[in-house]
Write a protein that binds this DNA or RNA. Structure first.
Lengths: 208, 208
DNA sequence: CCTTTTGTTGGACACCCGCTCAACTGGCCA
DNA sequence: TGGCCAGTTGAGCGGGTGTCCAACAAAAGG
């Protein structure tokens, strides 16, 4: 097993544990136990446990983002892309990844490696949205004088709603949140009301 | 010193420590040390440390909310109230309180007492906004067919932006965030562009 | 084949956690 | 003055943490 593979195996084990116990409560011994190896091994590949946790967060968040980007790439017009983005953002499949985000945001102020990973990946999500918005403005589908502001407002609105769903469970329903987010985003981008939600639902849309 | 005073003193000490070390990293010994008392005392007044932390969060969040509501009560028309709300939401004064929110959202899934405090206080903030929006609709200042949705979208948007400011520090500027949030909220409530930010700035508005 | 290198082990270290409990203190009442 | 008791102490318990490191195993190189 190559050095790189071993590192990935450690990160994967850390992810599995963190999903069950939380990022902050994931320990060296947990990870070693999950891998069936010794605890010393982890420190042979990582200088500190903080780096393991930051790597775990980064891998989860990167995979989550890559999945989203792949799905978006399969759609061709900006309106459909945006509709897909909004309709899938609160999917239960993303709950565990979103809990990683909550943990990262909370810990960012005290763990430098995490803050760097968290802020750069947050920017990546906003950039993904910015690309959609700019292409929509270019094609005439959207009407928006400030795509940068719209992209940040949109991710922030979605994150704020997702946060309620994941942290508080029953306070907001997923479907209701989609409708509320869509309404605001439609107004921000000069779309007719309902365009984002009445569109033929893309693969994996809505939620149970 | 009465029982109630002692409890409050413990909570206050826990708050001081939590501001420095984070809610999750605050220990019984830290709190006792800050008070200059023994660790046993804390357990004489609280059944568990989790309850101390939940109480600390609740006190910070309640005070933060009460301050906001008092300021709003001093203003009379809905537009001025909403402008004040938006212009003060990202104030540096609120940073430490907001870090408590980040910690609470992260920990909510694993600490029942915290989840209850966090979700009910989140609803209180949304209700505050809902009251403003409903009075604005009644007075004809706002145009909004779904005040409930608008209130949730607005808190979520503000929380999402505040989260970037507090967790990632330099990714977004406070002033820029106010402008972006205001633009979206104005569209949601049928206000003329700039009404929320060009209004005579209320006490403590903007940020350095 | 024997040495060297590399990967891996798991016990040990120093420190921290929440929580319990017997012992102590000091003010109040009889 | 003596007894009482709520308030308070802090050592101690069982268990946890990240990190280090001498010892071992196994593959690589001569």
């Amino acid at each position: 097993m190559s050095q790189e593979d071993r590192r990935e195996a450690i990160i994967d084990a850390a992810i599995e544990v963190a999903i069950e116990k939380g990022l902050g409560a994931t320990t060296v011994r947990d990870v070693a136990g999950r891998m069936g190896s010794s605890s010393g091994l982890i420190h042979h590949y990582f200088d500190s446990m903080d780096l393991v946790l930051a790597s775990a967060f980064r891998k989860v968040a990167e995979k989550d983002l890559a999945t989203s980007r792949d799905e978006l790439a399969a759609l061709d017009d900006p309106v459909t892309q945006l509709a897909h983005f909004v309709n899938t953002y609160f999917s239960p499949d993303r709950d565990s990844a979103f809990q990683f985000w909550l943990d990262a945001w909370s810990e960012a102020g005290r763990n430098g490696a995490l803050q760097q990973a968290s802020s750069s990946l947050n920017i990546d999500w906003q950039q993904t949205l910015l690309t959609i918005i700019e292409s929509g403005v270019a094609s005439g589908d959207f009407e928006c004088s400030d795509p940068l502001g719209a992209s940040w407002s949109t991710v922030s609105l979605l994150d704020g709603l997702a946060l309620q769903i994941v942290a508080h469970r029953t306070v907001l329903s997923r479907d209701q949140s989609i409708l509320w987010a869509a309404a605001t985003i439609e107004r921000d981008l000069g779309l007719r009301s309902g365009v984002l939600t009445h569109a033929a639902a893309p693969v994996g849309a809505a939620s149970p």
